[in-house]
Simulated scan of single mutants.
Amino acid sequence: MEATISAARGSANVREKRVRRFKALLFAVCLLPIVREAWLVVSGAEVNPIEFVIRSTGLWALVWLWAALFISPLKKLTGWGSLLRFRRELGLFSFFYACLHLVCYLWLDKFFDWADVFKDVIGRPFITIGTVAVVLMLPLAVTSTDGWVRRLKRNWSRLHWLVYPAAVLSVWHYFLEVKRDTTQPWIYAVVLGLLLGWRVYERGIRPWLARRMSPVR
């Protein structure tokens, strides 16, 4: 009995070390876009570095948000429950890049001219929509800790459904921002549609079908 318990503990420790290594690798991978952007700007490879930095930080915010949304389907497909432990890190990096995107716009484009910023937020729909998306992500980032999960209990899951309107608004913001070639925004929109469809199926349609098909007792 003791040998079995000891073996189980040893196996759990191995899995925990493996997860930590993957999380450290993921952390490094998520920071690579910043290194790449800094290199391209410093080397003079970009003709319009301000526009490049603003756009690329926004794009990477989308990439990491979509990666976080993919975790649940991947966990369902693979059965690897530890995947859920990477979702928080991806979500936080998405918020981090969204904040960088916002700060770069305020600093590099508007030079913190708050009157001009206010005019943009009120008068330019894609700025308004992008700002609302970042605001919706804020409570998700703040309540991402284990302590908040314990405090909010079931309400934590309900609160974190805000990720879906934030994702929809982010794609809408992207569509309005690019104006001409909307190929990339459409790719993100289609992928988001598939992810939302999977959520609706898993949370609504599948349980309903299970109840309908269960034998009457």
Rank of each mutant, 00 (worst) to 15 (best):
I5G: 06
S144Y: 03
F27I: 02
A45P: 05
V47W: 08
Y174R: 11
V163T: 14
V171M: 08
F95M: 13
R203L: 14
F52V: 04
E37W: 06
S82D: 15
A115E: 09
S144M: 05
E37P: 00
K179V: 12
R212A: 15
L140W: 05
W64G: 01
G79D: 03
A68L: 01
W60A: 07
L102W: 14
L176A: 04
T128K: 03
T57H: 06
V41E: 05
Y174I: 09
D181N: 15
P33H: 04
Y201G: 00
L25G: 14
A133W: 05
E16H: 14
G58S: 07
Y164H: 14
S56H: 13
S6Q: 13
R212L: 15
R203D: 13
L176I: 01
V103L: 13
L92G: 00
L83F: 13
W156M: 08
T143K: 10
L25C: 15
A141F: 07
P73W: 01
P215Y: 01
A45I: 02
F111P: 04
W114L: 09
L169C: 04
E46Y: 06
V191A: 14
A8Q: 13
L102N: 08
P139W: 12
E202H: 08
L192C: 09
L92S: 03
Q184C: 00
R211Y: 08
V171W: 05
L40Q: 11
R158I: 02
R154C: 04
P33K: 03
V142D: 01
I122S: 01
R158S: 11
Y97Q: 11
W172L: 15
P165M: 12
V29S: 12
S214M: 13
F126W: 11
R180K: 15
L83V: 03
V14Q: 10
W39I: 12
A28K: 04
G44I: 05
G79N: 09
V142M: 03
I122G: 05
F70E: 08
V103G: 00
G193Y: 10
T182H: 04
L196W: 02
L176T: 00
P49A: 02
L136T: 05
W172K: 04
V171T: 01
S43W: 07
I54R: 00
I54K: 06
F111M: 11
P139T: 08
M1N: 14
Q184W: 09
L159I: 06
P207E: 12
F52D: 03
V53E: 07
W161P: 02
G204Q: 10
R15Q: 14
K76D: 12
G58V: 04
P73Q: 07
R211K: 00
G81R: 12
L169M: 00
R158C: 00
S6I: 03
R150F: 04
R150S: 10
L162T: 09
V103F: 08
C104L: 08
E89C: 12
S82W: 13
V216W: 05
S43N: 11
H173M: 03
P49T: 10
L159S: 09
I122M: 02
M1C: 13
F70Y: 06
